[in-house]
Each structure stands twice: as C-alpha cells, then as structure tokens.
C-alpha cells in the first residue's frame, strides 16, 4: 500500500494540496493537512476497499477540516487555490484578454461555495469520477454531478454578466 500511496502522492500532490487549501483557506494549514493525512494513511495496515484515490482525497479533506477546526480564526483565511494570472505572466501579459478572463474565472471559482470548489478541484484537476467524489464528500455521485453542473452554469452566467 505504501507504494500506491507514494504513486498517488506524486500524481495528485498539487490537487490534494488544493483540496486542503479549499477547505482551510490557508496554504500552511493545507500543507499540514496533507502531511497529517498521509501520517494517518501510513498507519493503516489494510488497504481500503474501492478507489484508493477517493480514499486519499477523503483523508486529506478530513485532515483539512480538522486543521480548520483547530485554527483560531483571527484573520480571514481565504487564500486562492489558483495562481493569479498576474503572478505567473507578469504585468506585460495583463492586457491579454484570455488571461484576464482566466483571472476572472479563478476569482469566481474562489467565490463559489466550498462544496462546489471542492468538486471542481477534484473533478477537473484530480480527474476523479463523480462516484469517487461522492465517496469523498459522503454524498451520492448523482448529487455531485448535479452540483458540478450547477456550479458550471453559475460560472457561465457570471462570466457572461461581467462581459
């Protein structure tokens, strides 16, 4: 199981971190959550049934929720899970229309509800199926699919409105 965990971490490390960041809103806490999740996973002797990816994502999410509960919220923790366009392309590229749209899109996603953001991160960047995401969130796969579609519709409407 350790080999599988290592492989999963190498494959999904960024997505796992993003999921934790979505929950905690703080990069430091998100890293702590990922680390804590793997500590818990490595303690287990038996491989869980079903999708191991979903299990690992679920462990990271639970650890992130625990970290968020322990954190005393003296400041607003709402760090974005995305790299802003300005951060990665520099000021010279800010005039690019597509990059502006991407920047707007990332802001809109950050403004979504937490559950919707989790689903988008796991679906789009983790390539998890709706059933696997449902396993992580503890909801049916059909419900996850519905929430995902609603989130996309909401994003499209807001992008159209901004345009």
């Amino acid at each position: 199981m350790r080999g599988e965990l290592e492989q999963l971490y190498c494959q999904h490390r960024q997505t796992l971190f993003s999921l934790a960041l979505t929950v905690t809103g703080c990069a430091g806490l998100a890293e702590d959550a990922v680390h804590e999740a793997f500590v818990r996973l490595c303690r287990q002797q038996v491989r869980p049934e079903g999708s191991l990816s979903a299990y690992v994502f679920s462990a990271v999410r639970n650890a992130a929720i625990d970290c968020r509960r322990k954190q005393v919220r003296q400041q607003n923790l709402a760090e974005s899970v995305f790299v802003r366009t300005a951060d990665r392309r520099g000021d010279a590229a800010n005039s690019d229309e597509s990059s502006e749209q991407l920047s707007r899109l990332s802001i809109l996603i950050d403004a979504l509800r937490e559950s919707a953001r989790e689903i988008i991160v796991m679906k789009t960047f983790g390539n998890l199926t709706f059933d696997e995401i449902g396993q992580v969130l503890g909801t049916p796969g059909a419900t996850v699919a519905t929430r995902y579609r609603r989130a996309l519709i909401k994003l499209e409407e807001q992008l159209r409105r901004d345009a």
């Binding site: 490390r13 960024q14 997505t15 971190f17 993003s18 960041l21 990069a27 998100a30 890293e31 990922v34 680390h35 760090e79 974005s80 899970v81 995305f82 790299v83 990665r88 749209q101 991407l102 899109l105 990332s106 996603i109 988008i120 991160v121 789009t124 960047f125 996309l152 994003l155 499209e156 992008l159």
Partner: peptide, 17 residues
Amino acid sequence: LESQIRELILRAPSEVM
C-alpha cells in the same frame, strides 16, 4: 468553460510538504 478551468494553474505546495 471546463477547458478554461483546466487552463488555470493550481498553487503548488512548498517543497517542505
């Protein structure tokens, strides 16, 4: 829209993690 979302770049964790 999904394609655009995929173009977004996720924040990378630090090497410490």
